[in-house]
C-alpha cells in the first residue's frame, strides 16, 4: 500500500517563533503510526494538519497523494476523523452523540449498549473516550487521528482503550496516534515517527 499522508517541508508558526520547521515524513495507509516526541514539539499541531483543523504556514500536507487543501474540507474531515485528547461529550444521550446504529458501535468500542440511553456527560472519563471513538467511527472514516487518546485515563481503562485502538488498525483503518509515551508507541504501533528532540 502507498502513503496515506505525507508532510512535505512543513512549517507552522506560533506566537513566539516556529512550532514546526521544515518537517517531512510519510504515513503509510496500513496499520498504526505513532507520533512521539517531547511536549511542545508540535505533535498535536502535526495531527491537526491532517484534517485541516489547522493549515501549515509553509510546505504542504498530502492525503492520498494530493494536497489536503484540494479536497472538500468537510469530506476530508469525515474521511479522516480526529479525536482530541480530552473526550468531549455533546449534550444529550450517548445514542444522540453516536447517531444511528449506536448500539452496534458501542459494542465495537467495548461499551455496554445499555449505555445508549444515558446522558453522555454522566459517563466516566474512560467511557466518554470510547464513546468519542464510536462517534468518530459512525462517520465511516478511512483514518483515525488520535491525540493522546489515553492520557486522561487510569491504567485499567488505558489498557482497554489501547487494545481497542490496535484492533481498529487491524481492521484496516489508517490510525495516526500522537503520544508522549515511548513505551506505548513501541508496544502498540507498527511504526514510530519521532518529532523534535
Amino acid at each position: 500500500m502507498g502513503d496515506r499522508f505525507e508532510y512535505r517541508d512543513v512549517t507552522v508558526n506560533g506566537d513566539h517563533g516556529p512550532i514546526i520547521s521544515g518537517f517531512s515524513a510519510r504515513i503509510p495507509a496500513d496499520g498504526l503510526t505513532a507520533v512521539v516526541g517531547p511536549s511542545g514539539a508540535g505533535k498535536t499541531t502535526l495531527l491537526r494538519l491532517l484534517n485541516r483543523l489547522d493549515d501549515p504556514d509553509g510546505g504542504e500536507v498530502l492525503f492520498d497523494g494530493r494536497d489536503v487543501r484540494t479536497y472538500d474540507v468537510l469530506d476530508l474531515r469525515r474521511r479522516a476523523q480526529y479525536v482530541g485528547q480530552v473526550a468531549v461529550p455533546f449534550p444529550g444521550t450517548v445514542a444522540a452523540n453516536v447517531g444511528p446504529d449506536a448500539s452496534g458501535l458501542l459494542v465495537r468500542v467495548g461499551l455496554d449498549p445499555a449505555l445508549a440511553g444515558r446522558d453522555a456527560d454522566r459517563l466516566s472519563v474512560g467511557e466518554a473516550q470510547r464513546m468519542c471513538l464510536a462517534r468518530a467511527l459512525a462517520r465511516r472514516p478511512e483514518c483515525l487521528l488520535l491525540d493522546e487518546p489515553t492520557s486522561a485515563l487510569d491504567s485499567s481503562s488505558k489498557i482497554g482503550v489501547e487494545a481497542l485502538i490496535r484492533s481498529l488498525a487491524d481492521d484496516g483503518l489508517t490510525v495516526v496516534m500522537v503520544t508522549h509515551e515511548t513505551r506505548q508507541a513501541l508496544e502498540l504501533a507498527d511504526r514510530v515517527l519521532e518529532v523534535g528532540a
Partner: peptide, 20 residues
C-alpha cells in the same frame, strides 16, 4: 474551542459547530 473543534472534526460546518 475543544467542543467547537470536536464538532468540526466530525465534518460539521462552522455554522453547525458554533450553533449553540
Amino acid at each position: 474551542r475543544r467542543e467547537v473543534e470536536a464538532h468540526l472534526s466530525l465534518g460539521e460546518t462552522a455554522a453547525e459547530a458554533s450553533a449553540s
